[in-house]
Amino acid sequence: MREELENIRTEAMTKIKKSINSDNLEEIRVKYLGKKGVLTGILRGMGSLSPEERPAAGKLANDVREEIENAIENAKKSIKEKEREQRLAFETIDVTMPGKANPIGGVHPLTKVLDEIQEIFLGMGFSVAEGPEVELDYYNFEALNIPKNHPARDEQDTFYIKDGVVLRTQTSPVQIREMEKSKPPIRIIAPGRVYRSDAVDATHSPMFTQIEGLVVDEGITMSDLKGTLDTFAKRFFGESTKTKFRPHHFPFTEPSAEVDVSCFACGGKGCRICKNSGWIEILGCGMVHPDVLRRGKIDPEKYSGFAFGMGLERLAMIKYGIDDIRLFYENDLRFLKQF
């Protein structure tokens, strides 16, 4: 019996060593250790041994069994490792091939710039207001000190709907509408479309977008106007941006100014973008004219305010280096995808 066990051990160990996959090992396990396996058979035959022989033979049989079990276990482990390695090697892919995702779209560059501007002003305590695009002559002109036959009506060639109704030529009418319905302190920006009878070319569009700003409160000064717009310019164009305020004339502000910023592209040295001047004109502004305050039912003796207006397309063109305003309204996907 001892001999038999020794033979089984040698045979099994040899087979285990030779096995190459987990199926082989399973076969070996069944053959030697299974219910009908060789070793089980021998153990069953133990009854025929004398009581003296039994303990030694039993021990040996258990040793052999344990040995085979361990060997199978170890072999299984190493085969699994090998198999995993093989699988990993087999699964190698070309990581330089393009990825797959649900492609996302994008907002229009004008929206993008507008969002950026709104963020800046929201941070300074401005709220966003809106007004109609088809507007009464009164709000667009009369209330803003531009009576009938005023030369400014020629300058901004107006689209008329009928007598007394126009397509607004500026977002400034929102100033009056906002003052009429709210009391100071007022701090708003009003983005929106405006219309002027300009033929379409690379720098003109009969429809474009303006952003109006209005602040009315007690004790508002020209210093506040300068501080607000200077902050805006620095946030929008970069902290090193300088601003230059030049006197100008608008019927609805007094004093009035135009604002230039130092060219963000060349830092003021002069380049193509700033036409070698080092400066780029970005907006018009001024202290709200007392007549305008009065029409907004606000007492100019008690309150003062400032207003400003800027062209969104112009700012976006400067920011992205776009040289033709028509691209915004043509919506070629290859253009839209760039922002």
């Binding site: 709104q118 305590g125 401005f126 709220s127 409160d217 004790g219 506040d224 300068k226 501080g227 607000t228």
Partner: peptide, 24 residues
Amino acid sequence: ARIYGYNNIPTRKIVGETVEGTVK
């Protein structure tokens, strides 16, 4: 202002009641 020079007018942050910026 213009003879004094707009650019000589000091700049300051708006003073007065703090207003919260809101969107509708």
